[in-house]
Design a protein around this nucleic acid. Structure first.
Length: 299
DNA sequence: AAGTTAGACAACCGCGATTCG
DNA sequence: TCGAATCGCGGTTGTCTAACT
């Protein structure tokens, strides 16, 4: 009964990968590309589960993996993103080029969780851990872990796979992207953000850091107040003066979201990322039409 | 020096979502 | 339309190693 195992475990290697296994996997993927993980071990001659191969590749062997310690900037970004997204490690990782969800998850569990817990008591940062009830395996320090702070609302987005996505606004607006998933959209968007940052002469936009302020919290509240999902009208915003602002069109230096002013470019871009995730979720199998997508209100 | 404990992180597991035949 | 296959995610466990007793 129950779910069929992804593969027969008999005769398969488990535990840490050897250098030889890594080499075989790298060679195979370089030649044949990723995908078909189930068949990969057999074809490559690896005594490993397909899932294991995928994980090893994604978390360790990929050439674009960034090695080395998490920088202070990255740490700050993780904290902020976690505050917004909760334990959505893949989404968080999507905004940290070269970092994997597993790495960030581990980093959070081993470093930031404790750190922030300390900060909660000693500083006014008021960074909360989103009710994450992570159980430590060996240490069973349940007293420090399973006492979720009052869960604050997080922006629950959802990554979905899309076979055809037309991306308005935040990426290359004219670009039609075939066979990319939402994750790719996020990555591209993140890359765009970073590239823009790099090119920007203004110090305000340096690096990955961005300032979230009270408007964010209000924003998430507002978003969540719509039954946890963005409403179509949310995309067509009204600024403080009651003027409509198309969220896909930068209004000079300012963009208005939910009546909140976002003057920081990086903040904007990130916000757009999040919106895109949500849009993709809600509209994933409802491909945008060329003009329709610019008129989000019509959706 | 030997044994124990704790930290770090790689790897595994189960499940939901999506794709495909 | 349906069910199996596949993928991707988040939570959990296992292993290695450094620090401590």
């Amino acid at each position: 009964m129950g779910r069929k195992p992804c593969c027969s475990k008999e005769g398969l290697n488990r535990g840490p990968w050897s250098a030889q296994e890594d080499k075989i996997l790298i060679n195979y993927i370089q030649i044949h590309g990723q995908g078909k993980w189930r068949d990969l071990p057999h074809k490559a001659g690896l005594k490993r589960c397909g899932k294991s191969c995928r994980l090893r590749w994604l978390n360790y062997l990929r050439p674009d993996i960034k090695r080395g310690d998490i920088s202070a900037e990255e740490e700050e970004l993780i904290i902020r993103l976690h505050k917004l997204l909760g334990n959505r490690w893949a989404l968080i990782a999507g905004r940290l080029p070269g970092r994997t969800d597993n790495e960030i998850k581990n980093y959070w569990n081993t470093n930031l969780r404790k750190k922030l817990k300390g900060d909660d008591k000693s500083t006014s940062m008021q960074l909360q851990i989103n009710g994450c009830s992570i159980k430590s395996s060996k240490k069973s320090s349940s007293e420090e872990i399973n006492k979720p702070a009052e869960p604050h609302r997080v922006f629950r987005t959802k990554a979905v796979r899309c076979t055809k996505v037309v991306i308005p606004g935040l990426l290359d607006f004219n670009q039609t992207v075939d066979n990319v998933g939402a994750e790719n959209v996020v990555s591209q968007s993140s890359s765009a953000l970073i590239q823009e940052d790099n090119n920007s002469a203004t110090s305000d936009h340096d690096g990955l850091l961005m300032d979230f302020d009270i408007s964010e919290l209000l924003l998430w509240d507002a978003l969540n107040s719509s039954s946890g999902s963005l409403q179509a009208n949310d995309y067509h915003q009204i600024n403080e003066n009651g003027d409509h602002c198309d969220p896909n069109v930068a209004n000079g230096d300012h963009l208005y979201h939910h009546g909140l002013e976002c003057s920081d470019f990086a903040h904007e871009a990130m916000f757009e990322d999040l919106l895109m995730d949500e849009r993709t979720t809600r509209l994933g199998d409802h491909p945008f039409q060329n003009n329709d997508m610019m008129d989000l209100k019509s959706l």
